[in-house]
């Protein structure tokens, strides 16, 4: 039953969203074909779908991990900005042998994102500051800092665009030739690996148990002797670190520097990814891939249609979140089905 709801929600939202395109004088079937073609049509297209999925899987995991601890992380966007910024600065300035450079870069990204998250966790645990408000504010603060670095402090003088100096060659990840130039790198496997690690952590270790216990019932956990504050700070650290790791694939794998506004809202789409996957780390791999495919599929709409643009991806995302999280709606439907079975 738990797996049925996300699948039904996805189908329902996609059908609704595609039908709505007929209001713009386009055939929904035609749009659907463009989505399939552009998402999976060639090795390159599929490679791009995978590339788009990597940050979404990571931000989805980030939101889920915090949610399991009873915390809402709306700040994955800021955490991934700080992670990407930190790894870009580190990789542009610190010469390291190519054997350890990517690993060091990943650690820097994770730590930067983690610290950005842990700050909120600390203020939540110690001062009772609501984490939703705090993470929203931290998003803007991260955007301001990154803008200063990319526009003034470490700006690449060879371009007009606000971006940092290019990273040193030792830090670039190898792009697999299988995908005809799509920047699929080790970051893909890293994100899958991390999803599995998250699952092991949450469901197979005592720490993960404590984290989930705090998420279920703070007072009961506290009575049972779990250090609630410590768990909350740690959960926000891990959550931020997961978001920060987006910098690995984006900076070291794809772009080669920190570009201002490189993220088309990965942090917010991560919320959709997490809730479609019902915050289960392994399910998030699939919902991340789905949202990656939607994003890639929509990216060619401008070329093949007159009236519908890639912004349709946002509408589809929003519909999926609305439908899948409408508890009241599903409670009405599910008892009927139970009665039949």
């Amino acid at each position: 039953m738990t797996i049925l709801r996300p699948i039904l929600a996805t189908i329902l939202s996609l059908v609704l969203g595609l039908l709505a395109t007929s209001l713009f004088h386009e055939s929904p079937l035609h749009i659907f074909k463009i989505f399939l073609q552009s998402g999976f049509g060639s090795a390159y297209d599929f490679g791009m779908t995978l590339t788009y999925s990597v940050p979404l899987i990571l931000t989805g995991l980030s939101v889920s991990l915090a949610f399991k601890a009873g915390l809402f992380n709306i700040g994955a966007e800021g955490q991934l900005t700080m992670g990407a910024l930190a790894v870009a600065v580190f990789a542009a300035l610190v010469p390291l042998p190519s054997l350890i450079a990517p690993l060091a870069g990943a650690l820097v990204a994770a730590c930067a994102g983690g610290i950005w998250g842990a700050l909120v966790g600390f203020l939540k645990a110690r001062r009772g500051a609501h984490e939703v408000i705090m993470t929203i504010m931290m998003n803007f603060i991260a955007a301001g800092i990154s803008s200063y670095v990319a526009v003034y402090l470490l700006k690449d003088p060879n371009t007009q665009n606000p971006q940092t100096l290019p990273i040193l060659p030792a830090f670039s990840l190898t792009q697999y030739s299988l995908f005809n130039g799509a920047p699929v790198t080790f970051a893909l496997f890293l994100s899958l690996l991390i999803a599995v690690v998250c699952w092991l952590y949450l469901y197979r270790t005592p720490y993960g148990f404590e984290l989930r216990a705090v998420g279920e019932n703070e007072h009961a956990s506290s009575t049972a002797g779990i250090g609630v504050q410590k768990v909350q700070i740690l959960a926000m650290f891990f959550s931020g670190a997961l978001a920060g790791l987006v910098g690995v694939g984006e900076v070291m794998g794809r772009v080669g520097c920190f570009k201002l506004d490189f993220s088309p809202g990965y942090g917010f789409t991560g919320i959709a990814v997490a809730f479609l996957g019902r915050c289960h780390p392994l399910a998030i791999i699939f919902s991340g891939l789905l949202f990656g495919a939607i994003q890639k599929g929509a990216s060619d709409l401008e070329i093949f249609t007159q009236n519908v643009t890639s912004d349709l991806a946002l509408v589809l995302q929003a519909l999926i979140i609305l439908v899948v999280s409408a508890d009241g709606l599903w409670e009405k439907w599910i008892p009927v089905k139970k009665g039949k079975a």
Binding site: G265, F268, T269, A272, D311, L312, A313, L314, V315, L316, Q317, A318, L319, I321, L322, S325
Partner: peptide, 8 residues
């Protein structure tokens, strides 16, 4: 979701 919907 509403913010994303509006942006799209």
């Amino acid at each position: 979701a509403i913010n994303i919907l509006a942006a799209g």
